[in-house]
Amino acid sequence: MFLDELTPIVQEILGQPGAFLGGFTSALLKLNLGDDPVKSWLENQGASAPNQDDSDDSSGKGPQTISID
Results as ranks from 00 to 15, higher is better:
F24N: 03
E12T: 11
E12D: 13
L21Y: 06
A47T: 03
G18M: 05
I9C: 04
S55Y: 03
D56C: 11
Q52I: 12
I9N: 04
N51G: 15
I13G: 05
P50Y: 08
D4T: 08
S59D: 15
V38D: 01
E43T: 12
G46K: 01
D69C: 03
I13H: 03
P8F: 00
W41P: 01
E43A: 15
G46I: 00
D56E: 13
G18H: 06
L33N: 03
P8A: 01
I66Y: 09
F24S: 08
E12S: 13
G60C: 03
G15E: 01
I9Q: 04
S26T: 08
D4L: 12
D69M: 02
Q45I: 04
Q11G: 08
E43C: 04
L28W: 09
L3V: 08
T25G: 10
F2Q: 09
S48Y: 04
D69L: 05
S59Y: 11
F24P: 00
D69V: 05
Q52A: 14
Q45S: 12
S58I: 15
D53C: 08
T7D: 15
L33V: 01
K30P: 00
Q52L: 14
S48T: 15
S55C: 06
D35Y: 13
L42Q: 03
S40W: 07
D54V: 08
D4R: 09
Q52S: 12
M1F: 09
S40E: 12
V38E: 03
E5H: 07
D57S: 06
G34P: 00
S55K: 09
K39I: 01
Q11F: 05
Q64L: 11
A19P: 00
P8I: 00
F2Y: 04
A49D: 02
N51E: 14
N32E: 11
P63V: 05
A49F: 03
T65W: 11
D57Q: 09
T7L: 12
F20N: 02
G46D: 01
L28D: 02
L6R: 05
T7I: 09
L21H: 02
G22P: 01
D36G: 02
E5Q: 08
L29H: 07
S67H: 11
I66W: 05
D57G: 02
A19I: 03
E12G: 11
D35F: 11
S67F: 13
D4C: 09
N51L: 15
P17N: 14
K30G: 01
F2G: 15
K30I: 03
S55R: 10
L29W: 11
Q11S: 14
V10H: 02
M1I: 04
S67L: 13
K30L: 06
T7C: 07
D57L: 07
A49S: 11
L14I: 10
D53R: 09
S48L: 11
F24M: 10
L33F: 13
G46M: 01
L3T: 10
N51Y: 10
K39P: 00
S26H: 06
Q16T: 12
T7G: 07
A47L: 08
N32S: 11
D69G: 09
N44Q: 14
G18P: 00
V38R: 06
G62I: 02
L29G: 06
P63N: 06
A49G: 01
D54H: 04
Q52F: 10
A27R: 11
L6I: 09
T25V: 14
G18Y: 04
K39G: 00
P37I: 03
K39E: 05
D69K: 07
S48P: 02
F24Y: 10
F20W: 03
Q64N: 10
A27I: 05
F2E: 10
